[in-house]
Amino acid sequence: MSTAADETVRELMLVMPRLVGRAKRMPPPEQLREFDLAPRHLSLLSLLVLDGAMTVSELAARLGVAPTTVSLLVGDLSRKGVLERREDDTDRRRRIIDISAGSRPAITEWLSPGARAWRRALEPLTADQRRMFVDTLLRYEEVVAAPDEHR
């Protein structure tokens, strides 16, 4: 006899591969294809598209990684001309990271359909339901990353 949870798991096991498959069919813009972008690059670029320019520390906090990790990503993408670093007008020791003017249109066009789809899917939910949805995905990611720790 299957439980309601089993039915939900079954449905998610069917939908998740389709979601991943659709995401993989959204190739990066032509000018970025040669860069072999990884998911961590996509997360960083998404933040910059959605929230605008920010410091390495701010990016690290939002991505949940060490500032040194973000510095490596930024350095890599800066050398390729995808990102630019500029001095913070209010504190010359800080660097502001942003998508380069030449890359912004292509990156925005690439990432916008996904953002619009999430917005449409989440719009009918209450704030608490959206938070539960995100928390559930984060918990799933955590369990998948370290399955033996969560038996």
Results as ranks from 00 to 15, higher is better:
residue 44 L to K: 04
residue 30 E to N: 04
residue 18 R to S: 13
residue 7 E to I: 09
residue 2 S to T: 15
residue 8 T to V: 15
residue 22 R to W: 10
residue 58 E to Q: 12
residue 94 R to I: 13
residue 139 R to V: 00
residue 150 H to Y: 15
residue 77 L to N: 04
residue 118 W to S: 10
residue 41 H to L: 01
residue 44 L to A: 09
residue 86 R to L: 06
residue 103 S to V: 09
residue 100 S to F: 07
residue 106 A to L: 02
residue 45 L to P: 01
residue 69 T to K: 04
residue 117 A to R: 14
residue 79 R to S: 14
residue 12 L to V: 11
residue 84 E to M: 11
residue 124 P to K: 13
residue 58 E to F: 00
residue 121 A to Y: 06
residue 68 T to F: 00
residue 140 Y to M: 14
residue 80 K to L: 07
residue 138 L to G: 12
residue 109 E to F: 05
residue 110 W to G: 10
residue 49 V to N: 05
residue 87 E to Y: 09
residue 135 D to C: 02
residue 111 L to P: 08
residue 65 V to H: 02
residue 121 A to W: 09
residue 64 G to M: 02
residue 62 R to H: 08
residue 18 R to I: 13
residue 2 S to C: 04
residue 89 D to W: 09
residue 118 W to A: 14
residue 110 W to Q: 09
residue 34 E to W: 01
residue 5 A to C: 07
residue 12 L to D: 03
residue 8 T to Q: 14
residue 97 I to V: 15
residue 65 V to R: 12
residue 150 H to C: 01
residue 23 A to Q: 13
residue 15 V to F: 13
residue 46 S to I: 01
residue 37 L to S: 09
residue 31 Q to C: 01
residue 31 Q to V: 12
residue 83 L to M: 03
residue 125 L to F: 10
residue 16 M to D: 06
residue 129 Q to P: 08
residue 51 D to H: 05
residue 50 L to P: 00
residue 136 T to S: 14
residue 130 R to D: 10
residue 14 L to T: 14
residue 9 V to T: 14
residue 32 L to P: 00
residue 96 I to M: 14
residue 5 A to S: 11
residue 51 D to G: 02
residue 110 W to K: 12
residue 28 P to E: 04
residue 75 G to F: 03
residue 30 E to Y: 01
residue 9 V to Y: 03
residue 141 E to P: 00
residue 74 V to A: 07
residue 119 R to E: 05
residue 28 P to Y: 00
residue 20 V to L: 15
residue 65 V to F: 02
residue 51 D to E: 13
residue 83 L to D: 03
residue 142 E to N: 10
residue 109 E to W: 03
residue 14 L to H: 12
residue 97 I to F: 05
residue 42 L to D: 08
residue 18 R to K: 13
residue 76 D to M: 08
residue 116 R to Y: 12
residue 26 M to N: 15
residue 94 R to M: 11
residue 107 I to D: 02
residue 70 V to P: 03
residue 138 L to E: 14
residue 12 L to R: 05
residue 86 R to D: 10
residue 91 D to W: 13
residue 11 E to Q: 12
residue 126 T to I: 06
residue 80 K to S: 13
residue 123 E to C: 07
residue 55 T to K: 03
residue 57 S to L: 06
residue 88 D to S: 13
residue 29 P to S: 09
residue 119 R to G: 07
residue 144 V to D: 05
residue 123 E to H: 14
residue 26 M to W: 08
residue 133 F to S: 11
residue 92 R to Q: 08
residue 92 R to M: 06
residue 21 G to D: 04
